[in-house]
Design a protein around this nucleic acid. Structure first.
Lengths: 190, 190
DNA sequence: CAGCCTATGTACCGATCGGTAACATCGTCA
DNA sequence: TGACGATGTTACCGATCGGTACATAGGCTG
């Protein structure tokens, strides 16, 4: 019997496997058998470490949100005390990411679209984290002295979500590659 | 045995049932049993009228695209010979639609997100029709004398797709309700 | 009424899915 | 050595899925 646990616990291997597969193929598009096979473990190990497939999906979403937060924090670090520059830095980075060939958008947005039932726990978790992403944009805009902050916030949130899906709907480089220029257009008079 | 075909063929009943259910719950989220039950017919009737569930889904997507085209044509009719007004009319209408409580976005975008496999026939059909939607926006922008037409086209396409998903991700009225104002912001100097 | 054709229903298939039970095996540490 | 915790092995369950073979009902025409 092979024991490929090279210092990496089964739970961690499963989490990594689920992250790759959930992001590439969607949550509903991946079966637990595929997850454990890709992780080099067996099914009972998955259910010893996680409550259910939905529970594992929730862990995946939390992890994905953490990655998104690092993008926000990087943008803040790039332009300290310059909310306009932070917004532009974020959208420049987003445009670059969305131009890569295997781009699959935002795991949270994808999950919301995958689960139309508002009461599904996976969707609720994704929607909660997605709101936090919109809140970051809103917080940057309030630091600006914009004439119409609500319109600007809505525009930037819609732009962000647009890049997430356009990166999948159109062959790269699609419209998402110009997200930075579009953000500058929205911010042109602030 | 009941014969509930009140002048409406089984194929038509199935098409109507599939349209409602596919739009509300997604294509993958609806089983053929649910479709035929909602249509008041039985499963073999579905497979006599349509090649497969995927084939029925393709018909649904074509129908959905026709609806989108009527929105474009209405915008053109509202402001003849005024591409800027046509764009604004379209986004005003989109904002109104996206503010309704049961809004579920664009069936084409939803289908693309539901089928991550680029080779899946349902996704290919959805992507083809989605490109046609982006082409309409591009055609309006070329009629404008914009300084940066590529950026403007990308911005409007991203705005449109953003409304499609934000209408589902955020409780109404979400950012999509301001799509008209955002479009005016993007078009402010043309 | 006989015969036929078309539309429809009944019952089923094989595959896949998420999830579980029971038991075997390994490494570690006292 | 012996006990323990973590993992692997095998086999299975019930539900759901897309899809189909076969029987049946109704209307038309002779």
């Amino acid at each position: 019997m092979k024991r490929p646990t090279l210092g990496v616990s089964a739970a961690e291997r499963i989490r990594n496997s689920a992250r790759e597969l959930f992001y590439s193929n969607g949550i509903r598009g991946v079966g637990v058998d595929e997850i454990v096979q890709n992780a080099g473990v067996t099914k009972p190990s998955l259910y010893r470490a996680y409550e259910s497939k939905d529970g594992l999906a929730a862990v995946y979403l939390d992890e994905f949100y953490k990655t998104c937060r690092t993008y926000f924090e990087e943008a803040e670090a790039t332009c300290p005390d310059d909310p306009r520059g932070q917004i532009l830095a974020y959208f420049d980075g987003l445009a670059e990411r969305a131009s890569r060939p295997a781009y699959r958008g935002c795991g949270l947005t994808n999950a919301i679209l995958e689960f139309p039932d508002h009461d599904h726990p996976v969707r609720q978790e994704a929607a909660r984290l997605k709101q936090a992403m919109a809140d970051w944009i809103a917080s940057r805009v309030t630091l600006l002295d914009a004439r119409a902050p609500e319109t600007l916030t809505s525009g930037l949130v819609l732009l962000m979500e647009g890049v997430f899906v356009a990166g999948q709907a159109f062959a790269p480089p699609g419209p998402g590659a110009r997200a930075g220029a579009v953000a500058r257009l929205l911010l042109h008079d602030v």
